[in-house]
């Protein structure tokens, strides 16, 4: 049986649920917003985890779950808890409930998409870039500094330069402009990440187990996720086929990072050099599936089912 954790109306969860329905796989939905009706216990004895999960009025042994798809949101942001005081019993209960669930998923023998620990590499882009390089991908020339002079020299050397956050927050990629340079001294307060712009075609690759789905994105925007805002037009997405060795590199990269499911952001230059910018451990694949019809959710459902 498959356990789906999160908000059932969120599109990726809804798509995986639909795919599980289609292939006749048994599943149960853990709707975070219904936390008040849940209970969970975990026991580890001689290295073997066991436990019970009560939800929707039923009780399950955690051993029943052979696959877990989790897109849990921070429970502090659940509508039911938004105005809860810090010492609210509901907050404390949710903390213990979702912690117990997460702790079990981290060590469970089930197929878990994805475990929390390996997702941590995405917290620091240059940290992750150092891992990415080991798998044969190019990474863009990157400078992180709080010294404006070094930024001027970097820009003089590479011409078009972009900047973005080092961590995962406020991660909108922007081109560094002359106007930005007038306030470059502000970086003295906090080191900032700059990268040489790479010309080429953006390709998002979703890997699930050893299956690969590649989507090319055509846009004039610096950050295709914000194409309408940055260029005035929506990005155009189309399915593409990767050459075998590149597909294998993507599978190896995701596996090496410990991610059963990953969204890998590539740029392929006119010279066919392959740059990798980031590996997203919780990809919002529904955007790509809805634009191209690629059966990503079906592949996730099959992976969870052990197929």
């Amino acid at each position: 049986m498959i356990l789906l954790c999160g908000i059932p109306t969120e599109t990726p969860i809804a798509l995986v649920r639909e795919a599980l329905e289609s292939n006749g796989t048994r599943y149960v939905v853990l709707n975070q917003r219904k936390y008040a009706s849940m209970k969970m216990s975990l026991e580890i004895r001689a290295g073997k985890p066991s436990g019970k999960l009560q939800l929707n009025g039923d009780s399950y042994s955690v051993d029943d779950f052979t696959g877990v798809f989790t897109r849990l949101m921070d429970y502090h942001h659940l509508p039911e808890l938004q105005n809860a005081p810090a010492d609210s019993p509901d907050l404390k209960f949710c903390c213990n409930l979702f912690d117990t669930l997460t702790r079990w998923a981290e060590i469970s023998p089930a197929r878990v998409v994805n475990r929390v620990a390996p997702m941590g590499s995405n917290f620091s882009k240059p940290f992750q870039a150092q891992l990415i390089k080991r798998y044969g991908f190019e990474v863009p020339e990157t400078l992180i500094t709080n010294d404006p002079e070094l930024v001027r020299a970097f820009r003089a050397r590479y011409g078009r330069v972009i900047y973005k956050s080092i961590s995962g927050v406020r991660s909108i990629v922007q081109t560094l402009t002359d106007d930005d340079m007038t306030r470059i001294d502000n970086i003295r307060w906090c080191p900032t990440q700059f990268q040489a712009f790479v010309e080429g075609t953006n390709v998002r690759v979703h890997t699930i187990g050893d299956k690969v789905f590649a989507t090319a994105i055509n846009t004039e925007a610096t950050d295709y996720r914000y194409a309408k805002r940055q260029s005035g037009d929506h990005a155009e997405l189309r399915e593409v086929e990767l050459v075998d060795d590149l597909a294998e590199m993507c599978v190896n990269l995701a596996a090496g990072l410990g991610l059963a499911f990953a969204g890998i952001d590539l740029k392929i230059t006119p010279e066919n050099d392959v740059y990798c910018f980031e590996v997203n451990p919780s990809p919002a694949f529904s955007y790509y599936e809805s634009q191209t019809g690629q059966p990503i959710s079906r592949a996730v459902a099959e992976y969870l089912s052990g197929q």
């Binding site: 849940m38 216990s41 026991e43 213990n96 409930l97 702790r103 060590i107």
Partner: peptide
């Protein structure tokens, strides 16, 4: 987390006590 350490310690061959955690702790 301590749950992961105790699980891992057992894989390493160390004697481990039983570990319990629940939503109602």
């Amino acid at each position: 987390h301590v749950s992961e350490w105790v699980w891992m310690a057992a894989q390493a061959g160390l004697p481990t006590p039983s570990y319990q955690q629940s939503s109602h702790d």
